[in-house]
Design a protein around this nucleic acid. Sequence first.
DNA 1: GTTTACACGTCAATGGTGTTGACGTAAGGT
DNA 2: ACCTTACGTCAACACCATTGACGTGTAAAC
Lengths: 237, 237
Amino acid sequence: MSERVVPEDSRQRRRPTKQGAVLSEQLIVETALRLVAQHGADALSVRRLGAALGADPSALYRYFRNTDALLLAIADELIGRAQDGWRATGDWRTDLRSMGLRIHAIYVAHPQAAVLGAYRTTGRPHETRAVERILGILRSAGFPDALAVRIYHAFVDQALAFAAQDAAAKALPPAAREGDEQVWQSVYGRLSPDTHPNIAATFPLLAADMRDSGYPFALDLTLGAAAALLSQEAPRA
Amino acid sequence: MSERVVPEDSRQRRRPTKQGAVLSEQLIVETALRLVAQHGADALSVRRLGAALGADPSALYRYFRNTDALLLAIADELIGRAQDGWRATGDWRTDLRSMGLRIHAIYVAHPQAAVLGAYRTTGRPHETRAVERILGILRSAGFPDALAVRIYHAFVDQALAFAAQDAAAKALPPAAREGDEQVWQSVYGRLSPDTHPNIAATFPLLAADMRDSGYPFALDLTLGAAAALLSQEAPRA
DNA sequence: GTTTACACGTCAATGGTGTTGACGTAAGGT
DNA sequence: ACCTTACGTCAACACCATTGACGTGTAAAC
């Protein structure tokens, strides 16, 4: 067996499957995303994907070395979609903020797929384009390279980590998700001020705040701290 | 079958397994954590856990309804361990920092338990204790309640999100993990300065920085921003 | 001390998973 | 029109979580 995967570029012989489908990397990725969107992350198996494509499951191995390679392709597709139509304004803080919120939004919009790929390094074109852009924003804002890199790292990991977390919560089976939300009322709402004074004192605020994602505020904190570092570097722009 | 799980409290008949082990909820959780610690991410399966305990795999279903219940029990144990021995110094920034790093560290040390448990709200005692403590640190530092709650939210979600992300990366099958690390050399190291000037210019810094978790720096940025907000609130302490 | 009930460990089976080697056919280059 | 070989298919392997049936050892009841 060894090398059964042919790079997408140099593919010439596309033979229709028994059921008439003509396979391609793109078609497989799109079908996988659709499968996940409709039937949840658990629905993504080689066998089911093969069935959805109208092909033998093992045909996928002509396009991806293994399921991990397929996963990376899916993850990269999401990164690409997050950037589609994004435009720089020239103000670094505005640009980073919109980029972060976009990444977060697209992952949360595809919860099941996000859970699978949010913590991977794909090295694929969409990903490298995003890295290049974010680094560019920071460097042209005046951050020296060493600092730009550290902030890039914190920024990207923060965006992906929150995205994955919020996506995961959204992708939970309905029963489990409702259970987790109930806990705020049934447990935290009933803790005694004697044993848990701080929770009791802030409970209404807490219950309200925890309903939404903590990301936007966390992002603003990070950007604020970065701005402070920048003004230390170049006290006068 | 239906209800084969008996609550741990009301258990009376403990029959030794063929290999002489006497099972208990506690023993199973501890063995699972040991299995993960010693043999890595892939080692945690019902079959292998059964083998490690010296029992038939299906015996576990007398103690946990399914593997998800088992993993939640493990996650709860982790929250407890993260706080074991933690002491407040009285300096809010130091205390939050050590709490965040502890949470992160304990989750990363037990990757797949973290992946499944980091985005759940359990409402169990270990969890409420942690919430109470963190809120207490912020409120006694002088943050007004509304702000304390928002910062609490950002802080906790960030700690858990990064923890889950780094844990997930660590829980990857060795092949995939090495692949992801290799990508920095094989892809990002070879991008042309023409198409990717910012990556090319900072590559050595980038490759070095991305090897470690972005959390400690992200945490410091967040705490720095919080400190700035505090000094706005109470310009003079 | 003996009997009895049933908790719980074991066995076997089900239906799922990713992955691979062998094989034949049809597509493309010549 | 012929060859080569890419690629879709088939069958098999080894693993996974989960469950119903079964019998035995334990602990309570007498």
